[in-house]
Design a binder for these strands. Structure first.
Length: 583
RNA sequence: GUCUCCGUGGCCUAAUGGAUAAGGCACUGGCCUCCGAAGCCAGCAAUCUGGGUUCGAAUCCCAGCGGAGAUACCA
């Protein structure tokens, strides 16, 4: 917005510097901290500090320079006044022109507003990565929401995104589950709620494994049968895995997530073992079997000390590990898709492993290895720094949380809006509940721990998704009642209220906010913006009449409300949160 | 031991090195005859410590303190 004008002024400042023997490139514009009116400001401290002929201390000299520049520049078109104050040169925009420019642009572009031009780059984002035969809990939710939101944001910033999900469909947890099933639940079928049923059987199996005499040995024997290719177990595995996948599908649908490519751990196990063999052959890996595992001594190879450490790529008994499978998977991704970047949304505790994988792939000579990026996020724990553990029974199941939140939201909707159709009520309650659950997961820095507690999770007030959804509903309500949405463009040719200026300013920032959060892979930036926007709208709503205003004021404000709704809905959607029409 | 991350009002969180550190929760008081009170307004209260870099530091560097995590056959 107004880039050309900024450039023109920057040009004139440069000319001034050249004419007066001052260094160039030291002056940059920023926004003035909002004070009822808006414009742009240039601090002159860097220029003052860089001038070899400066007179007096920097702050004072900056003020002198600001004053001289004020005279030299005069008042460019599009501005109403300028001032030199405390070392800054402030230029104030012509409010009507600026306002109309922003609002028209939003309304013209609609939901496309804020999107960047296609970059031609393609990126894969691997996220969710659940284990079959196990439940999904709130900790997993952060991964899904974060990953999904990052995908949305990258798409809006012009990249082609492949959403990938890497499913842990083999391993001890699966064997445990199946063994328990065959011994105690043979022939049983999951009910409608497959996820819950699978989860219950998993905790039962896990409990037996740790508590029941002899069960662990039985499971080990069962594992051996599986390893030797027992057909019956293989069939059972396919069948039960599908039950889990069906359960996941239900959750993804509920959360509004979809994937373009599903990878199974079982898919890459064999190729992983082959790959390790070639690593040994090429001298990258050291085979310590049968006493020791196959390792890649990265510190020894790279000459580093306690930095990359030792990566174990195959167990001493020849069975595969996480790392064994990770390597061929990375290769498969880059062969299947022409990726410019491969992002892994994995919790921070696996940072070293990710670093090792990337380095091993580099050592193997893959030029794309440098384009692997680990998006590390902190875990979700419980108050008192208690880590969620299915063994200790401290997990908060996704299912329970969603059900409870939806019930709570339904109570509120029923109270606020009793005349709503029950079906719509249910739909609204779910959107509000899911929003409330998702928002805390993405509204803080990826590297900060989220502490889950029921009270704040079910609080629909304050800085929360329902607050943002509510602002959107209010905007929607005005527009619905307006009926006569004007096609004549808004002029804003009247004395704007500060709250209007503030709201318009925020609207104009959306493209910037999207590109910032895409660049840093931080949905939290957009989450904060969404709240600021909603707050600005509520402020406007409180201070300015729309429907009861007349003429130009009404016309312009209606256009503003429409633009605000567009931006609110757009931002919520990028965060993976739905915006109900009423609530 | 080594490495990584975190340290901002009572609690939680924000601030491309830039103007008076911004919000939420909780607490106190006010606002529905007015486009939807899941809202608005007002009040209370903060940068872990010590150095350094800089015209300017919550932000960058160093040291310390406190918390969390990782550190060869879990993922």
């Amino acid at each position: 917005m107004f880039e050309e004008i900024k450039n023109q002024i920057a040009q004139r400042i440069n000319e001034f510097c050249l004419q007066n023997g001052l260094p160039t490139g030291k002056v940059e514009f920023r926004n003035i901290p909002f004070s009822g009116e808006w414009g742009m400001a240039a601090p002159f401290f860097p220029l003052a500090a860089a001038d070899p002929n400066k007179t007096g201390p920097v702050p004072q000299y900056a003020q002198v320079l600001a004053e001289r520049l004020k005279e030299a520049i005069g008042l460019p078109t599009g501005f109403t006044r300028s001032e030199a104050v405390r070392g800054y040169l402030n230029l104030y925009f012509d409010t009507a022109l600026y306002a109309a420019g922003v609002v028209d642009q939003v309304n013209k572009q609609g939901p496309q507003f804020g999107n960047a031009k296609p970059t031609g780059e393609s990126v894969m984002v691997e996220y969710s990565n659940p284990n079959t035969h196990k439940p999904l809990h709130v900790g997993h939710l952060r991964n899904v929401i974060l990953g999904g939101s990052v995908c949305n944001i990258l798409e809006a910033s012009g990249q082609k995104v492949v959403r990938a999900n890497y499913i842990g469909d083999i391993g001890l947890h699966v064997i445990k589950w199946m063994c328990n099933y065959e011994m105690y639940h043979s022939g049983e079928q999951p009910g409608k709620d497959k996820m819950r049923w699978m989860a219950d059987l998993y905790s039962e199996a896990d409990r037996r494994f740790h508590e029941q005499e002899g069960f662990e040995e039985t499971v080990r024997a069962y594992f051996a049968r599986w390893d030797s290719g027992d057909e019956h177990i293989h069939d059972l595995w396919l069948k039960t895995r599908q039950w889990s996948m069906d359960g996941f599908a239900q959750v993804y649908e509920l959360l509004g997530e979809h994937f373009d490519r599903i990878y199974f751990e079982s898919e890459v196990e064999d190729s992983g073992k082959v790959l390790v063999a070639s690593l040994i052959e090429s001298g990258i890996a050291t085979d310590g079997r049968p006493e020791n595992p196959v390792i890649v001594d990265l510190d020894a190879i790279l000459g580093t000390k306690e930095e990359y450490r030792v990566a174990v790529v195959l167990r001493s008994d020849g069975t595969s590990l996480y790392a064994t499978k990770e390597l061929p998977l990375a290769i498969m991704k880059f062969t299947e898709y022409d990726l410019d970047e491969s992002i892994y949304v994995i919790d921070v505790r696996q940072s070293l492993h990710m670093k090792q994988m990337k380095k091993i792939l580099e050592l193997m000579g893959f030029p794309w290895a440098k384009n692997i990026q680990h998006l590390a996020y902190e875990i979700v724990n419980l108050p008192g720094n208690v880590i969620m553990s299915s063994r200790d029974g401290t997990v908060v199941l996704l299912d329970d949380l969603v059900r409870e939140a939806t019930q709570r939201a339904l109570d509120v909707v029923r109270e606020k809006n009793p005349e709503l159709d029950p079906t719509i009520m249910q739909d609204v309650a779910q959107k509000v509940a899911l929003g409330a659950i998702k928002y805390p997961m993405i509204s803080r820095e990826n590297t900060k721990i989220v502490t889950f507690d029921w009270e704040s999770a079910l609080d629909f007030n304050g800085q929360s998704a329902p607050y943002i959804q509510y602002a959107n509903v209010r905007a929607n309500s005005i527009l619905r009642k307006a009926e006569d949405l004007e096609e004549s463009p808004a002029t804003f040719a009247y004395q704007l209220e500060p709250s209007e200026v503030n709201l318009i300013e925020l609207l104009s920032k959306l493209p910037d906010e999207i590109s910032k959060s895409a660049k840093d892979l931080k949905p939290s930036i957009l989450a904060g913006y969404a709240y600021d926007l909603a707050k600005a709208f509520n402020d406007f709503y409180n201070q300015c009449q729309v429907l009861k205003a007349e003429g130009e004021v009404r016309n312009s404000r209606l256009a503003l409300v429409q633009a605000a709704r567009t931006c609110l809905e757009k931002t919520l959607n990028l965060l993976g949160i739905q915006a109900p029409q009423v609530m």
